[in-house]
Amino acid sequence: MLDAFARYLDLQRGLSAHTVRAYRSDLGDLLSFLGVGAGDDEPVGPALGTLDLPDLRAWLAAMSAAGAARTTLARRAAACRTFSNWAHRNKLLKSDVAARLRSPRADARLPSVLTPEQAAALLDAAADVVAEAGATAGDDADAYAARALARRDRAILEVLYATGMRVSELCSLDLGDVDASRRTMRVLGKGDKERTVPYGAPAAAALQDWQDAREVVAAPDAGTALFLGARGHRIGPRAVRDIVHRATARAGVPDLGPHGLRHSAATHVLSGGADLRSVQELLGHSSLATTQRYTHVSAERLRAVYAQAFPRA
């Protein structure tokens, strides 16, 4: 049943692999709560036959008491509703028991973001590392690889900040997704939704610098991946997170991950005067309500807009 549910999420709903894994894990946890273990020989039918809304609420309450975050509870409630609807349509449940299950209100606060000055310091520090690597003596293979990886790290930071894309989207980029002449990238987001995002001159220069050095670290079967790991194959999200954490420590700015750069980019674009719809398209949000979380612009920006728009200001 878990496999069938996962196939439904993947093939019919088009959810990301990460979401499919999370929902499948959530359902497995629910079954354990109901007393059905993953290795049990007994069928899950009897447990599902008695499943009702109080059971689901008790499951969420137990997790809340254990200290689960609101975002986790909200995701698990969403997984319950999705499963309940699917199971009812496939006659595994007599009714859609989770139709009235409400999600806990998610915490609307955003993680810490960099100031524009801190973002500039982060990217300048990455450029300094590239310059230092280029000045380092040594012409052996290890030295060439170190220089290439420094260029890769700088390009990754520039692209994450310039485009606000998710780390999974960055890792899935191919060489053909980059249109250098127009300074745009084709990005495949959640639900396999494709969008085109622009990037500026600094990111363009860093990208070209990395592409010129890419062959130094590329494995024979590297394929068309834009960004490569140290072993020459497509880079993974964990490696990108490590790169960002190391870069923030080196630059002396607040520690954050790739998603923190996404939050920073969205905040800075909005603070610069961009409209919500444009930022929604840039970030690939399906709902404008998600983008509205980034409207925590500075008091200075709010005063400037007020003074400009209000005649009696």
Rank of each mutant, 00 (worst) to 15 (best):
S264K: 02
G236H: 09
L173W: 12
V253N: 08
A289K: 04
E194I: 07
V197W: 11
G284I: 00
H18C: 03
A162F: 10
R7C: 03
L160N: 02
R246M: 06
Y144E: 15
D153V: 00
L110E: 14
T184I: 11
V197A: 12
G138S: 06
A99D: 07
V279K: 01
S286W: 01
S172M: 11
L48N: 09
D179Y: 00
A230Q: 15
R13W: 03
F227E: 11
K94E: 14
K190T: 04
G191F: 12
V216C: 06
H263R: 02
L288E: 07
A218E: 08
R109K: 12
A155P: 06
A162P: 09
R195F: 08
S278V: 11
Q211K: 05
G164R: 03
D221S: 05
L114E: 12
G176D: 15
F227D: 09
T267W: 13
T82M: 10
F83E: 12
D242F: 01
S278M: 09
V297Y: 09
T184D: 02
P54K: 04
D140I: 00
L149I: 14
A77V: 02
R214K: 04
Y199A: 02
L30A: 08
L157H: 04
L31R: 00
T224I: 01
S103C: 03
L56C: 06
L170Y: 07
T224E: 14
T72V: 11
G28L: 07
E158M: 01
T248E: 10
S264Y: 08
S103Y: 02
L31G: 05
D128K: 00
R238E: 13
L101K: 01
S287P: 05
L173N: 11
R154N: 09
D255Y: 02
M165L: 14
F227Y: 12
G134Y: 06
V129R: 14
H88Q: 11
A274M: 05
Y199N: 02
Y294S: 05
S287D: 15
R81G: 13
L34A: 06
D209F: 00
A66F: 09
A78I: 01
T290C: 06
R303S: 11
P198L: 11
